[in-house]
Computed example of a mutant assay.
Amino acid sequence: MTKYDKIFKSQKTSQESLSPEEAVAAIAVVTAIADSSIEDVDAESLAGILWEFEVFEEYSEDETTEIVDRLIGIVEDEGLGPLFNAAKASLSDELVLDGFAAGVIVLLDEEELTISNQKQPYLKKLQEALELEDEEAEEIIKEVIAAFQEAEDEEYADDEDETIAVESYNQQAYKSPLGNFTVPIPVDSHQGGKIQSQEGVVGFSDDFGTLLRIDYYPLPPDQIEEIESVGQEEYFQSILVDKYVPQAIFANIPDAKVEFTEYLEDTLEGAYYVLVNMPKGSTISKQENNGTAIRLDAYRGLLTFISGEFLYIVSSQRSFFNGETPGSFEEEAENIKDNILEFVETIEFT
């Protein structure tokens, strides 16, 4: 008899009825108690984890906590095996993967982003009990780890940047700390508008996929000499295609690719434009049924030019929602370029 037979080989089933959503929560509760005790389970923390799942989007945090408390009560009265059997019987086919994901999240070491060797035997037993193939289980584990990694990355980025909600910003225009430009704020507080800034860059975003960003760099004398030597088109191409895009985009989105380039000789006294295809590279994510967040596909247009004594790179993102199909690269490039140029027209350079 193995350690987990009392859970996965129990012949008893709880008389308490469970909804499919409660069945997902029950697997999380069983997993949390399997190698510890009921007293060690923090119902509020466990409910907080579950509340991130799409299946609980209709529930408040308090309601989710009440569900967890009720499930813990069933374990106290009847044991882990009866609760697991009730959960398995109540779990709809669509939510089996969510149930496994709930177990994975409970077992995951959030600092190391791994599941320890000590917890692997339980996870394997859970997989077998839910009748999942190895490939299905491995994919869920990868998605859960990726979601935690993404959350860490976003938290780190938030620490690095100064992020201000538009409604908390007391001006209608943003002024660069170096005094080289002023721009009306292009996002709305009612749509979750935010301003993110750090030295040399400011970004404007909202909850609907808008991203407008201005990177700016003072031009030292040696760069001006290089422009005069190689010409503006070659210089802009080297800055944007050979340096900026690989460092700012390719380093974070390995599958990204430059799909379109264009030198605009008569625009802004010379400008260079590129369109980058970014699979799963949007700043906007969608929530999967198993609770993991997957970034949307997106295109990013970037325009570089010189104004005064500064080099600028202005970019705009287009995210694709709900299976939206993009047009041709040429069409998308033109539309995003027009959006950037309209934005640039609102910037007052000093």
Rank of each mutant, 00 (worst) to 15 (best):
R70I: 04
I72P: 01
V96E: 05
V75Y: 01
P82S: 03
D77V: 14
V96P: 00
R70W: 04
L83P: 03
D93Q: 15
I74N: 05
L80K: 10
A86C: 12
I72C: 06
I74W: 10
L71V: 10
D98C: 12
R70H: 10
D93F: 10
L97V: 11
D69T: 13
P82N: 05
L80V: 08
L80A: 00
P82V: 04
D98Q: 14
D98W: 01
D93C: 07
D98Y: 02
V96Q: 11
L71A: 12
E76K: 15
E94P: 00
V75W: 01
A89K: 15
P82R: 02
A87I: 06
V75D: 04
G73E: 04
G73C: 07
L97R: 15
L91C: 10
I67E: 00
A86I: 10
E76N: 11
D77G: 11
G99Q: 12
V96T: 15
L83M: 13
I72A: 05
D69M: 12
L95Y: 13
G79R: 13
G81N: 11
A87V: 06
D77E: 15
F84N: 08
P82K: 09
D77R: 15
R70Y: 04
A87C: 09
P82D: 07
P82E: 02
D93L: 14
V68P: 04
L91D: 00
G73P: 04
I72T: 09
K88G: 01
L83S: 11
V68K: 03
V68C: 03
D69F: 07
R70G: 00
I67S: 05
E78Q: 14
D98F: 00
V68L: 02
L80M: 07
I67R: 03
E78N: 06
S90I: 12
D77M: 14
G99L: 10
R70N: 08
S92A: 09
G81D: 09
V96A: 05
I67P: 05
L83A: 06
G73Q: 14
A87K: 07
L95Q: 07
L91Q: 01
A87D: 03
E78M: 05
E94V: 07
F84H: 07
